[in-house]
Measured scan of single mutants.
Amino acid sequence: ENLWTTASTFIVLFLLSLFYSTTVTLFKVK
């Protein structure tokens, strides 16, 4: 379960960073 928890945390952080960079890009375009 420890490995699954680590993987889940990594996926969440990846999605958050992806969402953040997408938002920054949209604001830069405007």
Rank of each mutant, 00 (worst) to 15 (best):
F14A: 00
E1K: 07
E1Q: 09
V24N: 01
K30Y: 12
T25V: 12
F19M: 15
N2D: 13
K28D: 03
V24T: 05
N2L: 09
F19T: 13
S17N: 06
F27W: 11
L3H: 06
F14L: 02
T9R: 03
T22P: 03
L18A: 08
L16I: 14
Y20D: 02
N2C: 11
F14N: 04
L26Q: 02
F27A: 08
A7D: 09
V12C: 13
V29A: 08
L18Y: 00
V24A: 05
L15R: 02
K28H: 07
L15V: 14
L16A: 11
L26K: 04
L16Q: 03
L13G: 04
W4D: 14
T9N: 06
L16Y: 07
V29M: 12
L13D: 00
S21C: 12
N2Y: 12
S8W: 13
L18P: 00
S17E: 03
F27E: 05
L3I: 13
L26T: 06
Y20S: 02
L18K: 04
V12E: 01
T6W: 04
V24Y: 01
L3R: 08
S8I: 15
V29R: 08
L15T: 13
L18I: 14
T22V: 15
L3N: 13
Y20Q: 01
I11K: 04
K30S: 09
S8K: 12
T22Y: 10
K28T: 07
W4K: 09
F27Y: 12
V12P: 05
T22S: 10
V12H: 04
L13Y: 05
V29D: 03
L15S: 08
V24F: 05
T22N: 02
L26P: 00
S21L: 04
T6L: 15
K30Q: 12
V12K: 00
I11F: 12
F14C: 01
I11R: 01
Y20N: 01
L13K: 05
L18W: 05
F14Y: 12
T25A: 09
A7S: 12
F14H: 03
Y20G: 05
Y20C: 04
K28Y: 08
F19N: 02
T25G: 00
F27L: 11
L18S: 08
L3C: 11
A7M: 12
T6P: 06
E1T: 08
V29T: 10
T5W: 15
L26I: 11
T23A: 14
V24H: 00
T9K: 02
L3M: 14
L18C: 15
L15Y: 00
V12I: 13
W4R: 12
V29P: 04
F19R: 02
K30H: 10
V29W: 09
F14V: 03
N2V: 10
E1H: 11
V29F: 10
W4S: 14
S21E: 02
I11S: 06
T9H: 04
W4N: 15
T5D: 13
V12Q: 03
W4V: 11
K28R: 09
T6A: 10
L3Q: 14
T25R: 00
L13M: 07
L18M: 06
L3S: 15
L18F: 06
T22A: 14
T5E: 10
I11H: 03
V12D: 00
T9E: 01
N2W: 09
F27H: 06
S17C: 12
T23P: 02
L3V: 13
V24I: 11
I11G: 07
V29Y: 07
V24E: 03
W4Q: 15
V12W: 09
T9Q: 02
W4M: 10
L18G: 01
E1D: 11
L26F: 14
T22D: 00
L15A: 08
W4P: 12
F27M: 15
T5P: 08
T9M: 10
L15F: 10
F10Q: 03
E1R: 06
F14E: 00
T5Q: 10
F19S: 14
T6Y: 05
L16F: 09
E1Y: 11
F27P: 01
V24P: 02
F19H: 05
L18H: 04
F10R: 03
A7P: 06
A7T: 13
S17G: 08
T9G: 07
L15Q: 06
V24G: 00
T6N: 05
L18D: 04
T23S: 11
T25L: 12
I11T: 07
L26E: 00
T5A: 15
T6C: 15
F10K: 04
F10W: 08
L13F: 02
S8M: 13
L16C: 11
E1G: 07
S8E: 14
L18R: 00
N2K: 07
T25C: 08
T5I: 15
S21W: 00
Y20P: 01
T9I: 14
T22Q: 07
L18T: 09
W4C: 09
T5V: 14
K30D: 07
V24L: 08
E1N: 11
T5Y: 13
E1V: 08
K30V: 12
F19Q: 02
V12N: 01
T9D: 02
L16G: 09
F19K: 03
W4H: 15
S17Q: 07
L13P: 04
S17R: 04
T5L: 15
L16H: 05
V29C: 10
N2Q: 09
W4A: 14
A7I: 06
T25H: 02
F19V: 15
F10P: 01
T9W: 09
Y20V: 05
T22H: 04
T23K: 03
V29G: 06
F19D: 00
N2R: 08
F10I: 05
N2T: 14
T5H: 11
S17F: 03
A7L: 11
T23R: 02
A7W: 05
V29L: 14
E1P: 05
N2A: 15
T9S: 09
L16W: 04
S21D: 01
K30I: 10
I11A: 11
F27D: 02
L13T: 03
T9L: 12
T6V: 15
T5M: 12
W4E: 13
A7G: 08
T22L: 15
N2F: 10
L16M: 13
E1L: 08
F10M: 07
V29I: 13
V24Q: 00
F10E: 05
T6H: 04
W4G: 13
V29K: 06
L26H: 05
L16K: 00
L16S: 05
E1S: 09
F10D: 02
F19A: 15
L15N: 09
L13E: 00
L13C: 08
